[in-house]
């Protein structure tokens, strides 16, 4: 227990410096990018005077270190700045999209784990069989089929022809729960199958590895039933890389699934990030990076705790 607390303390102590360094890095990188937010904002309505005013209004004419300092001090008091493009506080924008992003990420991950892990176990247990081959074929399809292609195909089949699911467009849950859920089905399938492929390949490989390990042989020698050997002893150890990958994939889903969001017009983090970068909406990007860093740190913490749960010897 003390070991665990030590581990947790170590983790938390590093969170603040990590975020700080990251925020400096991203801030610097963003400001080094060519392109000027005020210019990008004015676009066709370009008026030198308005552009100058916008620069001054958002402090873009100040030296970059000073701009960073301003951002940091405001951020510490919970003010993440204003979005130039939307004229909305960044914190408000992010809060509004957190739920949507979470909904999509969880739904996709459920699909991915539900398909990927059992398929991987099956493929490893029946290695070389047709189940293995078909499973691998499915997994590799999930990996190599581009999301836009699968997305558009699903839309054409299930929305245009069968009319089972909406093609696009987000409906808030409180307004119409059923339509809201239906709207997430196709995008979660697109994202979920891709990740399922990755998980399946890793589960299979790790299962093969642990099925050949000493303790599994021992278990077999002891006369345990094969199913029990596979599920209890081998799978437990095989889950290590699956947990690693699952955590990263989940983190990536949480920081935004750009293409899929775009195709299904889901207003999540991905779309926000792309628009933020392309319009040089610095505060939006900065806020998003912080949020996704926190999410990545959290998911990797969970992954490490799962390691310990799966492999008690690591605790020693």
């Amino acid at each position: 227990m003390t070991r665990f607390l030590l581990f947790l303390g170590q983790r938390l102590a590093l969170v603040v410096p990590t975020l700080l360094i990251l925020s400096v890095l991203v801030f610097g990188l963003q400001h080094l990018l060519p392109g000027d937010p005020a210019l990008a904002m004015a676009g066709e309505e370009m008026d030198p005077q308005a552009v100058d005013e916008l620069r001054r209004k958002y402090g873009l004419d100040l030296p970059i270190p000073l701009q960073y300092w301003r951002w940091l001090t405001a951020a510490l008091s919970g003010d993440l700045g204003m979005s130039l493009r939307n004229d909305v506080p960044v914190a408000e924008l992010l809060m509004g999209k957190l739920g949507i992003t979470l909904q999509l990420a969880v739904a996709s991950m459920v699909i991915a784990v539900a398909i990927g892990v059992p398929l991987g176990v099956l493929a490893a247990a029946r290695r070389g069989s047709w189940a293995d081959r078909i499973g691998s074929f499915f997994a590799l399809s999930g990996i190599s089929v581009p999301h836009f292609w699968l997305g558009i195909m699903l839309v054409l089949a299930f929305s245009v022809h069968l009319n089972w699911f909406p093609a696009s467009g987000y409906v808030p849950f409180r307004e119409d729960p059923w339509r809201s859920i239906m709207g997430f089905v196709l995008p979660s399938i697109v994202l979920g199958t891709g990740i399922a492929g990755v998980l399946m390949r890793h589960t299979r490989s790790a299962m093969l590895q642990s099925l050949g390990a000493d303790y599994v042989r021992t278990a077999r020698a002891k006369g345990l039933r094969e199913k029990r050997v596979v599920l209890r002893h081998a799978l437990r150890n095989a889950l290590m890389p699956v947990v690693t990958l699952g955590a990263i994939e989940f983190g990536q889903l949480l920081s935004g699934a750009v293409l899929t969001e775009q195709i299904f017009s889901i207003p999540g983090f991905g779309k926000l990030l792309v628009d933020g970068v392309l319009y040089r909406d610095y505060a939006v990007v900065q806020g998003l990076v912080l949020v996704s860093a926190v999410l990545f740190i959290a998911t990797s913490l969970v992954a490490d705790m799962l390691y310990f749960l799966l492999n008690p010897r690591l605790r020693a």
């Binding site: 909406p166 696009s168 017009s265």
Partner: peptide, 15 residues
């Protein structure tokens, strides 16, 4: 809806 193919699909499906 930025993707024109999807915009069209949503029209055809009646959304």
């Amino acid at each position: 809806i930025t993707d024109s193919t999807v915009r069209l699909a949503a029209l055809r499906s009646g959304e």
